[in-house]
């Protein structure tokens, strides 16, 4: 347990409101290194329950790296080292006691490029519940699959061809399938790493609508290149630059009256 007293007592250069009232994830003084190179410098931020927060910033600013720290996807890279503390429900996720498997079951992830398994649509969604043992019967599994597909808005489109391969869907459908796959394990938080960057505008609109829906039940952290997207879907926005968290705040405020000059420059399109 991270002691309560010093959570909100942290030195930071970040401008704006990094704290939330009902924090789900609490990050304090996080540094990330790839070998010698420091990719993230001293980032502190809270992520609240059932909020949609977007990370924006120019390419290579470390927003994706930071996102991948939140469910320890960086573990798969040998040279990657994380310092500082990240806690989920006040438990340090980098603690030795924490099993990364349980962690990732709680914090789902959707990737930049849709990556369905080369299996059927049904198998794609059922895979998570199966490996985690979330269903005790075929009916329960069917139910989870149906519900997840409904929640991701794909059910009507695929209900007649659940056994056809997931790779045969269109790009936007594939991405929604990946979202369905993520919510099938009943996570608390969903991380999305530029989920729309490989999609056309119509598919993007559908996914954005879906994210808005999902925001009622899950915390969603979304990394995006599109400021309009951040403005459309998120309640809070965090601006990263060169591995540092420059400014955090309500999306409206960030986009209308940014306090930091760098943020303003990025928002108004002068850097990026």
């Amino acid at each position: 347990m991270v002691s309560n007293s010093n959570i909100n007592n942290v030195k930071t250069k970040t401008i704006g409101e990094i704290f939330s009232k009902d924090p789900k994830i609490i990050c304090r003084n996080v540094d990330v290194f790839y070998g010698e190179k420091q990719a993230i410098k001293d980032v502190s931020i809270d992520i609240a329950s059932r909020e949609i927060i977007s990370f924006i910033g120019p390419s290579g600013c470390g927003k994706s790296t930071f996102l991948r720290c939140l469910n320890r996807m960086n573990d798969t890279i040998d040279t990657c080292k994380v310092k500082g503390s990240i806690s989920l429900d006040k438990e340090d996720i980098y603690d030795e006691k924490i099993d990364v498997v349980t962690l990732r079951a709680k914090i789902g992830m959707v990737f930049q490029k849709p990556n369905p398994f080369p299996k059927s649509i049904y198998e794609n969604v059922a895979y998570g519940p199966k490996i985690h043992g979330l269903s005790s019967s075929k009916e329960e599994l069917d139910f989870i699959v149906e519900n997840s597909l409904k929640d991701s808005g794909l059910w009507e489109e695929v209900k007649d061809r659940l056994q056809s391969p997931g790779t045969g869907l269109s790009g936007g459908q594939q991405q929604r399938l990946c979202i369905a796959r993520a919510i099938a394990v009943s996570p608390e938080i969903i991380l999305m790493d530029e989920p729309c960057s490989a999609l056309d505008p119509i598919a993007t609109a559908k996914i954005e609508e879906l994210i808005n829906q999902l925001g009622k039940n899950y915390s969603i952290v979304i990394v995006t290149h599109s400021m309009q997207q951040a403005a459309r879907i998120s309640q809070r926005t965090a601006y990263f630059h060169l591995g540092e968290l420059i400014e955090v705040g309500e999306t409206k405020k960030i986009f209308t009256m940014p306090k930091d000059k760098q943020t303003e420059a990025y928002i108004s399109g002068r850097i990026g």
């Binding site: 099993d99 498997v101 349980t102 079951a105 709680k106 985690h132 043992g133 979330l134 009916e139 329960e140 069917d142 139910f143 989870i144 149906e146 519900n147 394990v185 009943s186 996570p187 608390e188």
Partner: peptide, 23 residues
């Protein structure tokens, strides 16, 4: 398939099940 009484697991329930299977 919708006729049974099951509903989507909550996150808490799910993480308990996951934790029990991890070892």
């Amino acid at each position: 398939m919708n006729k049974n009484n099951s509903k989507m697991l909550t996150a808490d329930e799910a993480s308990k099940i996951v934790a029990s299977s991890v070892i």
